[in-house]
Design a protein around this nucleic acid. Sequence first.
DNA 1: CTATTGACCTTCT
DNA 2: GAGAAGGCCAATA
Length: 105
Amino acid sequence: MENNREFADKVYEMVKQIPLGKVTTYGAIAEKSGLRLSARTVGWLMNLSIGDPTIPAHRVVNRNGDLTGKMHFPTADYMRNKLEEEGVEFIGERVNMQKHLWLID
DNA sequence: CTATTGACCTTCT
DNA sequence: GAGAAGGCCAATA
């Protein structure tokens, strides 16, 4: 059935529900989706999400707050620029998780 | 169909 | 505290 699809669906749903000026982590999404040890798959789905304006993949960062997927974006500064534009504070090359880390309810 | 890689995270040594 | 390995899911060659 659509069991495997459920994971991707949940990931997309949560990413789409990320409030403006907030960022989340792959682990949080993976864990909330039921795949705690499969954070990598989240990234893969995000990669496929590129091209979908409904999925703000630029708001998804890793546990370190580093923009790991910036290289997969149109431009390396796209992610950083977009987040800054939304009001996200940056600490060097990392996002201020302590302030903008959004956890799923 | 098998093997390798990839936007990660956790745990052991 | 730092480093290395394992684990999961999916896509590509």
